[in-house]
Each structure stands twice: as C-alpha cells, then as structure tokens.
Amino acid sequence: MMLFSRVRGLPVMTPGDANRLGEVRGLTVDSAPWRVTSVRMARGRLRRGAVVPWSALRAAGPDMLIVRPAGGPEEVAAHHELIGSRVLTECGEERGTVLDAAFDPVTARIEAVLTTRGELPPGRLLGLGDHALVIRTGRAHHQA
C-alpha cells in the first residue's frame, strides 16, 4: 500500500542509465474502477508539467518510480486533484475535505480515501470533478 502524500516529490527515473526525468507532482485518478491512471510530474528547471500513464511504469517503490524507456512523458491531460478536494454526499451535504488516499502500487487501485471526517472505502465514492468528490450517503460512517 502506498499513500498519495508519500509519492509526491519522489524522483521518476528511467532504468539502466538512471536518467532522472523529473519528480512527482501528483496522481490522476479515474472512477469506475477507482484507480490511479497517470502520474503528473514536473520536468527540468522550469518545472514544465508532463504526464506518464501508470501502465508505463515498471515499478513503483518507496523511494522512486521507474519508467519503461519507451513510455516517455506525454502532454498534460485534464486532471482533478483528489487531495484537498471537498467531499460532498449525494444529498448535497459537505463532509470535510480529502487529506490523503491509499492505493496499491501493483494494481493501482485506490484502497481508501482519508478525509477530515474519517476514512472512506472506494465503494462509497461516486465521482470526482472540479467542484468536489461525491460520495454515497452511508449510515455507519461517522468516525469524526
């Protein structure tokens, strides 16, 4: 299991020549199923954005991400930041903000989302957009 907050700032390297491509700025997630689809990173001194699809990663370790040589950086795609987004139930009620999320580095599936009002399993998530992360209304979730 890996945390979004731990991945941020890790170097992205190519294997063999150990060429440093840049460092991780954030992860893009996609719903249905909830998984990490790509890694956004900052390149060079001007910190230009680039996106590496998760499938182009050979390994994701605790200290660096290794990219397959063929899977070079691509252009920046549409992205909604999960960390820090507000949480809204499907009944239009605010439930704090997202603090962090845990995912499996092998399958890239999101395992849990940690909010200011407790932890959410991926089954409760409905959608992530530019305004909020929408969740299903559940009864047994009050952990705050």
Binding site: S31, H80, S85, L88, E90, G92, L126, G127, L128, G129, D130, H131, A132, L133, V134
Partner: peptide, 11 residues
C-alpha cells in the same frame, strides 16, 4: 448561490 453539482463532482 448554492452550486449545482453533478454526481460526477462537477459544478
């Protein structure tokens, strides 16, 4: 002034 939000999270 309340936002109109889709279940996908977009206002």
């Amino acid at each position: 002034t309340l936002p109109v939000v889709t279940l996908g999270g977009d206002a």
